[in-house]
Amino acid sequence: MVLYIFYALSVIAMACALLVVFSKNPIHSVLYLILTFFAIAGHYVLLNAQFLAVVHIIVYAGAIMVLFLFVIMLLNLNAETEPHKNTLTKIMATISGGLLMVTLAGAFRVLEKNLGQVTVQNSNVGTIENLGKVLFNDFLLPFEISSVLFLSAMIGAVILGKKQLN
């Protein structure tokens, strides 16, 4: 049963990811990407990482993708304005992308020999309680610093978005 859910989610994720790449209209790309993220969130739930699943939906689907949508609509991008590469480039891109996949898969096969049998020690690591403890005990300083990062990103975005730079 679970395996079937896994298969379904994986197929959705991969198909939508391919559609992101190949759809002509940028708006469609964004929407397919949102679907991909939902599929990945489903995987998180399967892995018992509920907190990350929720955060993933909120941050990616809720915030980041909306930002993408806004920008695309703001710039009025659509299938007509979409630039096209020549065929040779597309073939080269596909070949090298496939090459990377094959290489990575082969590399994992090599590594599998050393991987051995992996056992589950604690399947409750992804709960909010557990994650909160680790986050605020071991990673308190990075957590605080990440807020500074956000602040600087916000200021940067505002400065860049201003009409008159000089």
């Binding site: 590469k85 080269m92 891109a93 090298s96 990377l100 990575l104 082969g106 090599v110 590594l111």
Partner: peptide, 21 residues
């Protein structure tokens, strides 16, 4: 930029091949 990314991907492939195969 496309050329740069292309080179980068091929380099990654080359490094992986060298490392694992």
């Amino acid at each position: 930029i496309g050329f740069y990314i292309f080179t980068m991907v091929l380099s990654i492939v080359a490094i992986l091949v060298f490392k694992y195969f």
